[in-house]
Design a protein around this nucleic acid. Structure first.
Lengths: 188, 188
DNA sequence: GTCAAGGGCATTGTTGACAATCCCAGGATG
DNA sequence: CATCCTGGGATTGTCAACAATGCCCTTGAC
């Protein structure tokens, strides 16, 4: 669970030893990280950790995420029932609890499950796939440049999202999404 | 080079035999295809070919591509010189030649090289990475649902793109990009 | 001193054997 | 008749040895 620096080399054999496994699974994991944009690898030359610039996050990754979620939320809306809403409410409750004890990890995990659940209900495989590729970078960005997440606010915003979904109003869903995803713009 | 159907199972061992290699490289190739959204795989259960719906292409993949290219073209603009323009002009010329003999493959390859060249010049690794993940699906879509590409028009549009880049006018670049990427909307 | 050729070392790419897991059929059981 | 267990076959996941490649540093010529 090391903390890697941008540009650090990732040698398959060394990592395999560290994790007490063979190079096969390490290779797969590196390909996964490459898919998530956290690592770049060059043939026969290995892999290095890749950072993410504020500019790319703000101007590319977040707008792309907004496109993905707008579409998938509207799609999911058509097929969600009370059981689904209950599932989401559970995650919101988890976020509230996590906020009360300042448990960042737990909050982030519930956050991801919340969005992932809606993605899966939307039944749009490509949208979900691209989301999973982009999400880790945005998360790494907020982590790295320490955007002091306000856990109470995260819980509140997801409660709001859930509420708009239950209301069934496309316009308010889009609005809540835009606020939730775009608003975290750090000061320049 | 088989033509696979949506939902078709892809068994590593069989493909390895067909291509006369071992399962390792086949696994890697399947992961690559998964990254490009053309295949989905489930742990211990294998991989299947994944189709792409018109709705997801039009409402998600193409808008995302537009976001990516708008950003990267403006970024690339700042660092391109006459040598770069010459390189792009070469690809436009290739497209014109391909159009004159109706060589679809050659045209598509030059098309991809054109965009890929600008992406590389933009120096935005995440933008390029997401583009490489999305591009194959859009291509597969136009291929699959046979959107009768007009090769002359493709060559013309890229000539236009090159021209706007050389002009250095951000507004005209964005305009040409929107026409180039969005206009192919098929009739409903 | 500069530059090109070559050889050694570190690392990734490939291979075939073995282990773990899933699916499905078939039978026992209520 | 429905349901639960169990075993076998097919397939993916893991492993360790071997091959291929790229990098760097030495060596030598000019």
């Amino acid at each position: 669970m090391g903390h890697y620096e941008d540009g650090e080399r990732l040698v398959e054999d060394r990592i395999a030893r560290e994790l007490d496994t063979s190079r096969g699974p390490v290779r797969e994991a590196l390909r996964q990280l490459e898919h998530e944009g956290l690592v770049v690898s060059y043939p026969y030359r290995g892999a290095v950790v890749l950072g993410v610039s504020e500019e790319e996050v703000q101007q590319v990754l977040i707008p792309v995420r907004l496109t993905l979620e707008k579409f998938s939320y509207l799609k999911a809306l058509e097929r969600m029932d009370d059981g689904d809403f209950a599932e989401l409410a559970k995650e919101v409750w988890t976020m509230q609890e996590a906020a009360s004890v300042n448990d960042l990890i737990r909050s982030v995990e519930a956050d991801i499950r919340f969005h992932e659940y809606i993605l899966s209900r939307s039944g749009q495989p490509h949208t979900a796939q691209v989301w999973r590729s982009i999400q880790p970078r945005i998360r790494a960005y907020f982590f790295r440049y320490g955007k002091e997440a306000d856990l109470n606010r995260i819980a509140f915003e997801h409660g709001e999202l859930l509420q708009t979904l239950q209301s069934g109003e496309p316009t308010s869903i889009i609005g809540a999404l835009e606020r939730h995803i775009t608003i975290r713009t750090p000061a320049p």
